[in-house]
């Protein structure tokens, strides 16, 4: 208490001596607002002019036609495999395998991705780089995971359990009418539980994303520093027509 009074006295003294020129330092009041940036606020021309070359280049690259889709490509046009899923998995295989081979001398066996990772349809018509940004907005890269046969069995169990058309490439899975496995082929050879397989997926899934815990059992992980989106763009540049089909890579036998 004594201390406080002392301070007050000193304060008053200074105040009198320097007649109001000192001590403008205490918050008397505060006022908070938020201002919505709507069309009533003009855009500053010089800033827009500065942005323009960047914007033009982004739009030019994103909207340049790279390929053509004769039909709509979606992830909901088949129960076990879909046009969008097959396209994406096949792209990861075709664009990823040569890089993996050149880095390690080894062959990629198959691709396994997640259905939820496909974020957009591809509309019928022109395909541009913007299409790839819509389908795959994430900065996910391709990684190759070495799995034991046992872990691949868990992968298959995960796939069957999920009931989802998770994108696959390089393997064929046939189900009996009661949803048990009829056959599994990898690179056209029957699945061998006693060997290791090299599986390409996204870095997100390889880290156990989407509860794909079998990827955490990896015997080795090779990062190939290649964005899935860039693999798509490179593929679109290489081909004229993009027309994936629902096929027999994963299907159920009819009774």
């Amino acid at each position: 208490m004594d201390l406080k009074i002392k301070h007050f006295v000193i304060f008053i003294t200074i105040g009198l001596t320097f007649s109001c020129k000192q001590q403008i330092q205490n918050v008397a009041s505060m006022e908070g607002n938020e201002i919505r940036l709507d069309t009533s606020i003009p855009q500053k021309d010089s800033i827009n002019a500065y942005i323009k070359p960047y914007r033009d280049r982004v739009n030019h690259i994103l909207d340049s036609t790279l390929a053509y889709a004769p039909k709509k490509i979606t992830k909901v046009d088949g129960p076990y495999n879909t046009t969008a899923g097959n396209l994406l998995a096949d792209i990861v295989f075709s664009e990823g395998a040569p890089i993996f081979k050149s880095r390690t001398g080894k062959n990629l066996d198959f691709v396994f991705l997640n259905h939820g990772g496909i974020r957009s349809i591809i509309s019928q018509g022109k395909i541009s780089a913007r299409t790839a940004f819509e389908v795959m907005p994430f900065e996910n890269t391709i990684v190759v995971v070495e799995l034991s046969g046992k872990s691949v069995k868990k992968l298959l169990a995960y796939l069957l359990e999920s009931g989802m058309a998770h994108p696959i490439s390089g393997m064929q899975i046939v189900l009996n009418t009661d949803n048990t496995l009829a056959s599994v082929k990898i690179q056209d050879k029957p699945f061998d539980e006693n060997r290791h397989y090299f599986v390409a997926t996204s870095d997100y899934l390889a880290a156990g994303g989407d509860s794909m815990i079998f990827f955490k059992e990896a015997l080795s992980v090779t990062t190939i520093d290649y964005l899935i989106r860039n693999a798509m763009i490179d593929y679109f540049k290489r081909v004229d027509t993009v027309a994936p089909k629902v096929d027999y890579r994963f299907y159920k036998l009819t009774p």
Binding site: H7, C20, N26, V27, A28, S29, M30, E31, G32, R36
Partner: peptide, 27 residues
């Protein structure tokens, strides 16, 4: 996404305002 700009104005003076009750806040 830059939809809003926040603005907080502080008014300061030479008076020793006492913490809990001495400062008026308009929000």
């Amino acid at each position: 996404f830059g939809l809003y700009l926040g603005r907080i104005d502080f008014y300061l003076d030479s008076i020793q305002h006492i913490a809990a009750t001495g400062v008026s806040i308009k929000v």
